[in-house]
């Protein structure tokens, strides 16, 4: 394996030793820059009870540029599209090297608690979220139940 930057090693160790409640992230065997992630749906959100799988990749110049993150489990959310791509400023122009894997995943978990249909990525979902919020929340709960549960 090519030399892994010390910062990535340190973050990995801390993720294992002091895990963030409701979030687990583990590097892949063959590529220590690729993380398998599970984020639990926050309490009092339509995603409560769900276990969402994500993939996270640290690019060559991390932490100077943001990790690339995507949902793997289907999710009904106005800021996450059908391919699982996430609309979140800190993953783009608001990235800072003082952010870490754990803070990024916490922000994503917070996005589940606070959907923002005014800044949509999934247009049909955002539209329904604006015109009929209760139906949108019902859909989100249904998707969580159907796709994001554990056995």
């Amino acid at each position: 394996m090519a030399a892994l930057p010390r910062r990535i090693i340190k973050e990995t160790q801390r993720l294992m030793q002091e895990p963030v409640p409701g979030i687990s992230a583990v590097p892949d065997d063959s590529n220590a820059r690729y993380f398998h992630v599970i984020v639990t749906g926050p309490e009092d959100s339509p995603f409560e009870g769900g276990l969402f799988k994500l993939e996270l990749f640290l690019p060559e110049d991390y932490p100077m540029s943001a990790p690339k993150v995507r949902f793997i489990t289907k999710i009904y959310h106005p800021n996450i599209d059908r391919l699982g791509r996430i609309c979140l400023d800190i993953l783009k122009d608001k990235w800072s090297p003082a952010l870490q894997i754990r803070t990024v995943l916490l922000s994503i978990q917070a996005l589940l608690s606070a959907p923002n249909p005014d800044d949509p990525l999934a247009n049909d979902v955002a539209e329904l979220w604006k015109v009929n919020e209760s139906e949108a929340i019902r859909n989100a709960k249904e998707w969580t139940r159907r796709y994001a549960m554990d056995n």
Partner: peptide, 30 residues
């Protein structure tokens, strides 16, 4: 230190894999 795959990492990888397989069967994977 340098990076090493620990038993903790292995365990977590296993549980991730199980969840993935289960959700895949349920049609929950994009």
């Amino acid at each position: 230190q340098t990076f090493e795959v620990t038993s903790d990492i292995r365990l977590l990888q296993e549980s991730m894999k199980r969840l993935f397989t289960y959700q895949k069967r349920k049609g929950g994977i994009i």
